[in-house]
Design a protein around this nucleic acid. Structure first.
Ligand code: ZN
Ligand code: ZN
Ligand code: ZN
Ligand code: ZN
Lengths: 132, 132
DNA sequence: CAATTCATGTAATAACATTACGTGATGTAT
DNA sequence: ATACATCACGTAATGTTATTACATGAATTG
């Protein structure tokens, strides 16, 4: 199991992200936590840094935003690369793993002698609901 | 052939990107073009916007930077999603297409009723040269 | 010749992220 | 127990990336 011991700030940030329907920017998180004593961006960025490290949160590069991991039970980051489908209308994000994609990208990097450290896959578009 | 008629500013920006070994941020481009009369970020962002539209340039989301398209002959964007392998040591970027990845992601989105508009695939790591 | 469109220029501001410095709590080795 | 290292935290300042608002001149079109 994961069961990392989170600090107060980390817990607050993770809670805000977990409760949110859509990804949040660091500054939005900051605003949501002003009542809990947050005053400066760094408080958020420091918590996010750890949460990313623990695999409890993902960063969406194409949005400069953050989401709680949707697969916490499985220790998400262990089963390879994660992909995100991001609805540009309602903001909803679906997180998924795909082994074929994963294997194929790994094959490419092996072939080139490229040593991957982190892979970003983000699909922007319209979700089924917004796309009727 | 593509042969879009570029404006002066678009040509300048594309030239800078084409000559560069590594991706450049908008502000770096701005600095490189001061001698050619560029004074403000917007001059760069406006040119980039068009160049992205024409498929002559790509944006690297994980770097907030831009690269000239490596496949200009083939009208790059026509053959599906592009992926990038980005060396975190030397900055070199390899652009490639992979139909299996492409098809697999399309299968996922079709299955979910998600209508994709733009897909980002970026692999950060170390290139063969930096990874000896 | 209007009227519209489009590339451009400039200034100001907004949004995102990091550096630098300092404090108190905790843990560990002598 | 004292010295030392580590870590979470707080605050201020600054750096980096991107957009909004407003104005001008050139090209296009009816
Ligand atoms: Zn996850
Ligand atoms: Zn939606
Ligand atoms: Zn390309
Ligand atoms: Zn390299």
């Amino acid at each position: 199991m994961s069961a990392v011991n989170l600090t107060k700030n980390q817990t607050l940030v993770l809670d805000v992200l977990t409760k949110s329907e859509a990804p949040l920017s660091a500054y939005t998180i900051l605003d949501k936590l002003r009542d809990h004593g947050f005053r400066a961006p760094l408080q958020v960025y420091r918590a996010l840094e750890k949460l990313l490290e623990f695999g409890l949160v993902h960063r969406l590069e194409s949005l400069n935003s953050f989401v709680a991991c949707a697969h916490r039970e499985h220790s998400c980051c262990s089963h390879g690369t994660v992909a995100f489908a991001i609805c540009e209308s309602c903001g909803q994000v679906s997180e998924f793993h795909d082994h074929v994609v994963d294997d194929q990208l790994n094959a490419w990097t092996r072939g080139k002698g490229f040593k991957p450290s982190k892979t970003t896959i983000e699909i922007r578009g319209l979700c089924a609901a917004c796309n009727s």
